Amino acid sequence: MAFENPSREEIKTILEQTGNIAVVGLSDKTDRTSYMVAAAMQDRGYRIIPVNPMAAGATILGETCYASLADVPDPIDMVNVFRRSEYCTEVAHEAVQAGARILWMQLGVVNMEAAAIAADAGLTVIMDRCIKVEDAIVRPVRS
């Protein structure tokens, strides 16, 4: 059976019920897409938890960066992945072990094995979508 992302209405509900987002592959470089997207999501009220072994112990967006999802001491609602597709299988296993509810692979990131691992463990899976764009569509800012 072919993979299908949740509907926009389902994505809206997911985002409304999400608080802590662990961002795997979050860069400490402000010109990187992962940083810009995470900063935008933080501005929208989400708590961003940086996960990047190359920056573990550093502070990114005012939060301590962890080497892996297993090192994060707080509950994780969503794992947002900014890694190449071939690394997502391992991330899916870690997301399941961490007790996350959602595995979100960013725009351009597709891994069917990772999706199956997460879905089989009861996680909602979203692939090849930008969380910042989806959040702006389903939760527009009202002035």
Rank of each mutant, 00 (worst) to 15 (best):
S27I: 07
I131A: 15
G99N: 10
M41K: 03
I131Y: 03
P53Q: 06
V133C: 07
S85Q: 08
A55H: 14
T18C: 04
L26V: 11
I76L: 02
D128H: 03
D31T: 14
P6L: 13
A55Q: 13
I48Y: 10
Y35E: 00
E94R: 13
E113G: 06
A39G: 02
V72L: 01
V79N: 02
K12F: 10
I76D: 04
A116N: 13
I76M: 02
V51I: 08
A100L: 07
A115D: 04
E63T: 04
D120N: 15
A119T: 09
W104T: 03
T89G: 14
V91M: 09
E86W: 10
P140W: 00
A118V: 02
A119V: 06
A2H: 09
Y35A: 03
I48C: 08
I137D: 07
I131V: 12
E16R: 13
A58S: 15
N111A: 08
V23A: 05
A38V: 07
M36W: 00
V23D: 11
G62Q: 10
R83F: 05
G19P: 00
D120C: 00
E134F: 05
V125N: 06
Y66G: 09
G19V: 01
R44M: 15
A56F: 09
S143R: 15
M127D: 02
D71L: 11
V96K: 05
A115T: 02
E94P: 07
A98Q: 08
V91T: 14
M105K: 01
D74W: 05
A58G: 00
C130D: 11
A56P: 06
V110C: 09
R84L: 07
L103S: 05
A55I: 07
P50M: 09
I21Q: 01
G19L: 04
P75Q: 02
Y35C: 06
T59V: 14
R44Q: 14
L107T: 11
